[in-house]
């Protein structure tokens, strides 16, 4: 049994190294000022896809991403590890999208990519952390979802079984294909790049699609298609207390404990 898998992956600023100039005056992110990585949860989704490909020969993996031209690297990172191909959605009309407009663009592109059995993506991206795009893509495609999956246990008879994390516990669930699966941070880390694939795909051109290529309605894309607006962005002025500095010696700390205990 072969599967057609699509992995949704996002290029994100590495929020662990936020520097000056990271924010524009209007409150949007100055992405150009930040180092970028493939969103960590999305890499874990890719790993689940690669494992399915090993388990079910004939399986194909396509990586789909949206972003500026340099986001093509996301697809290439997939190719370096064993994905079969992929597409970059890039168009000014996609810019400024909130999760709803993002899910519209992704779902429309998925529709164009043809038969898909499993759409895998990370649970959430480290820049927005909304965890909304996966479920919204599923809703737009009209298919079920398994959120926060830690491990895919197997596929048989058109059904997939996965272990998923819920609040204070786990569930093992079965869903019919096609399905969207969002992969939790607790899932297995992604394998490193494969040396041979790295060599052969270094120069591989990544197909870029714009709104017209996927037949998307520009009114539903980007800022135009986003119901949310940023009202204001304020720099944080932390409330400060008058704090007492305690020296790091036995006596002063003992006195502090006494004071607190009183």
């Amino acid at each position: 049994m072969s599967l057609n898998i699509i992995v949704l992956a996002k290029q994100v600023p590495d929020t662990r190294c936020v520097s000056q100039g990271a924010m524009n005056a209007d409150g949007t992110i100055n992405r150009a000022a930040l180092p970028v990585i493939v969103n960590p949860d999305d890499m874990k989704a890719l790993e689940q896809a690669l494992r399915l490909k090993e388990q079910y020969p004939g399986t194909t993996i396509q990586v789909l991403t949206m972003g500026p031209a340099r986001a093509a690297e996301v697809v290439r990172e997939g190719l370096f590890r064993g994905a079969d191909g992929g597409y970059l959605l890039s168009d000014c009309a996609f810019a400024g999208a909130d999760t709803l407009a993002t899910s519209y663009a992704l779902a429309t592109a998925i529709g164009k990519m043809g038969r898909h059995d499993i759409v895998l993506c990370g649970r959430q991206a480290i820049d927005g952390e909304t965890a909304q795009v996966g479920p919204q893509v599923a809703e737009r495609l009209g298919i079920p979802q398994i959120s926060y999956a830690e491990e895919i246990l197997g596929v048989s008879d058109g059904h997939i079984t996965a272990k998923r994390r819920i609040d204070n516990g786990i569930e093992i669930v079965e869903a019919p294909l096609p399905v969207v699966i969002t992969v939790d941070g607790a899932a297995a880390p992604c394998r490193p790049r494969h040396a041979k694939l790295l060599m052969s795909h270094k120069q591989t051109q990544i197909t870029t699609w714009n709104t017209a290529d996927i037949g998307a309605d520009p009114a539903q894309c980007g800022l135009a298609g986003s119901p949310t607006r940023i009202k204001s962005v304020e720099c944080i002025v932390p409330c400060t207390k008058e704090s007492r500095v305690i020296d790091c010696n036995d006596e002063d700390i003992a006195n502090l404990m006494k004071e607190l205990g009183a």
């Binding site: 929020t15 936020v18 990271a22 924010m23 409150g27 992110i29 820049d127 949310t228 607006r229 940023i230 009202k231 204001s232 962005v233 304020e234 720099c235 944080i236």
Partner: peptide, 10 residues
Amino acid sequence: FGGNVVATIV
């Protein structure tokens, strides 16, 4: 975003 700002969304 990195805790640099507080945003208000509508």
